[in-house]
């Protein structure tokens, strides 16, 4: 392997210098440094959560959903809904989706829950026609890809996550 700038010498020392291997090593180190920089950059953008790449927002007929696309194992996340103009709000979450999470907290409290047809449903009485925020604080319990279709007053919302170990 030829490389300008790195001197090749004859020496009397009894040591295995292996210059060609050093050159390969330096090349790998340079690639590694670029990789470190790239990972830092992507982390800042939200590849591992909390950022541009991770934040997802969906709006449909007066209902808006905000959640994190990239999650980390056992790091709590917030699925945030804002529902306008509904006196009764029913949010149905697939059991298969909930199998990957532990429900830590649901806000507002004072909801009714029921399980039917592979869904857990949460019913909230809003009592007003303004915007109602609903937060589900979920704690990821398994790693990998997770998808689930939530139903909010029969409207379908597809949530996709990747949970890092």
């Amino acid at each position: 392997m030829k490389r300008t700038g790195v001197e090749r010498i004859e020496h009397s020392l009894e040591l295995e210098e292996k210059l060609d291997q050093q050159l390969k090593g330096w090349m790998v180190q340079k690639i590694g440094r670029v990789l470190i920089g790239t990972i830092i950059f992507l982390t800042a953008l939200g590849l591992f959560g909390n950022g541009l790449l991770s934040n997802k927002k969906i709006e449909k007929n007066g209902t808006s959903l905000q959640y994190e696309r990239f999650l980390r194992y056992e790091k709590e996340m917030d699925v945030q809904w804002t529902i306008a103009g509904q006196e009764e709000i029913q949010i149905r979450i697939p059991l298969q989706y909930l199998d990957r999470f532990k429900v830590e907290k649901v806000i507002p409290e004072g909801y009714e829950t029921a399980t039917a047809n592979g869904y857990v449903s949460y019913t909230f009485k809003s009592g007003k026609t303004t915007e109602t925020p609903v937060h589900f604080y979920l704690n990821p319990q398994k790693t990998g890809n997770v998808t689930g279709e939530w139903l909010v007053n029969k409207q379908r919302f597809q949530l996709r996550h990747f949970i890092y170990p």
């Binding site: 010498i9 020496h11 020392l13 040591l15 295995e16 210098e17 292996k18 210059l19 291997q21 050093q22 090593g25």
Partner: peptide
């Protein structure tokens, strides 16, 4: 060994 620890360099 050389891969993980490297080699001496003059």
């Amino acid at each position: 060994d050389r891969l993980l620890e490297g080699t001496p360099l003059i």
